[in-house]
């Protein structure tokens, strides 16, 4: 089974990368984008023994740094 973990910066944490990307989008001549926040997505292939609690554990202890980031776990339908 595939599991996706989305890691994003918390609200209020400045995102210099997002700002630079935003600037580059404007450089393409596309306007109307109000804000860009950069995050990451990790795709895990897990077997049925991996519990939701274990996924929460790995996300909160390793995949995201809870000082600055949030995460969201999505189990992909088989």
């Amino acid at each position: 089974m595939k599991v996706r973990v989305y890691v994003s910066l918390k609200n209020g944490v400045l995102d210099p990368q997002g700002r630079a990307i935003h600037h580059a989008i404007e450089g393409l001549g596309i306007h109307g984008v109000k804000d860009v926040r950069a995050g990451k997505m990790l795709e895990l292939e897990v077997d049925e023994t991996v519990t939701d609690a274990q996924l929460e554990d790995m996300a909160s202890k390793l995949l995201a740094n809870m000082v600055i980031e949030n995460y969201r776990i999505e189990r992909q339908p088989a």
Partner: peptide, 11 residues
């Protein structure tokens, strides 16, 4: 230690 070290503000 508390806190985190993020990408430099000037990239």
């Amino acid at each position: 230690l508390p806190g985190a070290l993020m990408r430099n503000a000037g990239i």
